[in-house]
Every structure is written in C-alpha cells, then in structure tokens.
Design a protein around this nucleic acid. Structure first.
Lengths: 180, 180
DNA sequence: AACCTCATGTAACATGTTACATGATTGA
DNA sequence: TCAATCATGTAACATGTTACATGAGGTT
C-alpha cells in the first residue's frame, strides 16, 4: 500500500469533519490543528488533487461563470480505509522539535546575562499567549461542538498543549532567576 | 547584513566548542544538541563551504596521500560577530512543533479505544527513553565539562527537556486512564 | 477609491533527508 | 576476513513556505 506524508493524512482526517473546499480546510486547520500541525495552501491544493487521482477522494466541481470553479472534496471508502490504516500504524517520528530558544541558550555564554534573560522573558510571553489560545479554543469547542463525538479527542490534544506549555513557562521563570 | 538559517548559526556556535571537522561537528551535535536541533551531513558540509566563502570561517586543508583531504574549520572574528548578532536578535519562530501523536489522537474517533491507548502507551515509552537520555547527558556534562563556562547553559537546555517531557508523560498517564 | 474577505491555484525558493560513492584504519 | 568506525562529500528527493496572479463581492 502506497504511503503518504503526515500532512496528507491530516487532509484525509479533516475531510471527515465536513470540510469540503481547500479554503474551508485551511480555515479549519488554522483554528484547530494549528498548535501541532500547520499546513499552507501550497500543500493543500496540490495534495487534494493527488487524493483524487489516487482514488482517496472525489471532487464535485461547481462551475460558476466568471468565478474560478468551486471544488468540493469528499472522502471515498478507500480514503477512509487509508486514514484508519495510518491511525493504527506505529509512530514514525517522536517529536524532536527544533527549538530556537534552546539553540540560542545553548550558546549564550557569548552574550551578556541580561540579553539572555530578555530572550527567555520574551519566550515566556509567547508561551503565555499560547496558553490563552488553547483556552479560547477549549471554550469554543465547549460551545460549538459539545455534541460532537470528536470533541473529547480534540480536548485531549489541547490538554497536552496546556500542560507542556505550562511546564515550559515554569522553566522560564526559574531559569530567569538562575541567570541573575 | 546577510542572514542565515538557524542550522548555519548552530554551525557557527559549535565551532566555538573546538569542533574542527565536519565529522566532529556531526558527532558533537548528535551528543549535545540533538534533543532540540539536529543536522545531517548533507547540511554540514555544504554549509561549511558557504561559511568560508562568506568569510565567517577559515579552513586548513591537510593533504594526506590516498585519504581524502582532512579539513579543519576555524571561526573568524567576523564569524563570531555574526554569531553574537544572531544571539541578540529576537526570536523568529516560537516552537510550533509538529506532533504526530497529537495528529493521530485528533482523529482517533475513527479507531477503537484500545488502539488509541496503545498509541499513547508507546509514546510514553519513547518519552521515558528521552528522559533517560537527558539524564545521561547531564551526568556526562558533570564529569567531562564541569569546568567549562558553557556548561551551565547546556544544563538549562536539558532542564527544559526534562521538565516538558515529564509533563508530557503525566499527560500520557492521565489520558490513557480517561480513554478507558 | 481602497481595502478586506472569499476562493483557487502555481512557481520559485528554502530547507532538510537519504542513499550512495569512496577509501583508510581498527578490532573481532 | 568481515564489520565497524573514521572521514568527506554529492545528488536526488521530499517537504514546506512565500510571493504572486486572478477575480468576485462587500465594507469603509
């Protein structure tokens, strides 16, 4: 069986959530998956085409005069199978995130302490914003998707984000102190 | 001033640690930066050339008959300046790590609960291995680099890894319970 | 009139990984 | 002798981002 990259599987998954057009998909990804998987139009549109040629999705073209064709995509049974198959496969890559702050910190002997502190302070502020975003999404899910059977899983991913980010914030606070 | 990508700055930084050859650099990166910044030979060798043509490093070629030339790289003053300059610049990207587990979890309604549990259980095991690695590196730094002025910064990055990974492990435990 | 959002798409570019080629030395 | 490690490097490929082109319709 042909394999795809994770962004393609993300596309298959998002098609199960009543997202039909490339534009809708992008919106939805930005709202809900953005904190652990983002994707650009440059990936979405060409990949949707591939899905169709591989029989994982079908497309319904809505010709509109003047406007470019609107295209709605639908998962096929084969597409669902490929999605389910990917879900049960073992993990390929354990997140080894590249972290710019840590990279700079690693070499921070080469700069004065106060610069390193402000580096971490800035990072902490960004992390705080992340937490706020997570909580906003959480609330949004509570109001708009409380009946949705997917919702519990979405909340798990948010919980992950919140917990690890909070741990990172605490590290920031302690490390700023230590550098003094 | 010309800008470089973070992998190139990582190279500049590593050259301050008495790593001289491409091979040495790779070894060192794998040992110490690997948990937040990895790099392959396909990046190292071409990038080292660029550093030389841009005057950020010099190279000393050691012709050996039969063997391919051994090449030792040294930072120039300009190279040091570029490094320091990068250190004090604001962060470009706040880590938005792509996380395969979360991506799968997000769509896990489409598979039975026990499969999702074993997904997370597997993840947890990998995270535990990470913790072990962090602690091994920590000990190594204590024994081999206790006098090194860089060492405190290295320990900060390890602390970050340990804390966020521990938070992730706790999330795994709790989430496995919740899915039951 | 200018700007924003909706909407689709491509081309150029940046970045990074993998497989391969080459060949010496060291140790089991 | 066979495998591993030391050591340098490239080419093909995979992946992803950015800038741009196009144009409708609504808002300021």
């Amino acid at each position: 069986m042909k394999t795809y990259n994770n962004s393609t599987y993300a596309l298959l998954g998002i098609l199960t959530l009543d997202c039909r057009t490339g534009y809708e998909i992008k919106q939805r990804m930005d709202q809900s998956l953005n904190h652990f998987w983002k994707i650009s139009y440059g990936q979405i549109y060409p990949n949707l085409k591939t899905l169709v040629t591989d029989g994982l999705a079908t497309v319904k073209v809505m010709s509109q005069d003047g406007k470019p064709d609107g295209k709605e995509y639908f998962l096929t049974t084969k597409g669902e199978e490929v999605l389910k198959n990917w879900l049960k496969e073992p993990l390929q890559h354990i997140a080894n995130e590249r972290n710019e702050v840590l990279l700079k910190l690693f070499f921070s002997r080469h700069q004065p302490a106060d610069q390193t502190q402000s580096l971490i302070r800035h990072y902490k502020e960004e992390l705080q914003k992340k937490i706020d975003t997570y909580e906003a999404i959480e609330e949004m899910i509570g109001t708009n998707y409380s009946q949705n059977p997917d919702a519990t899983y979405w909340l798990y991913t948010l919980d992950y984000g919140k917990r690890t980010t909070k741990a990172a914030i605490e590290w920031c606070e302690d490390t700023i102190e230590k550098i003094k």
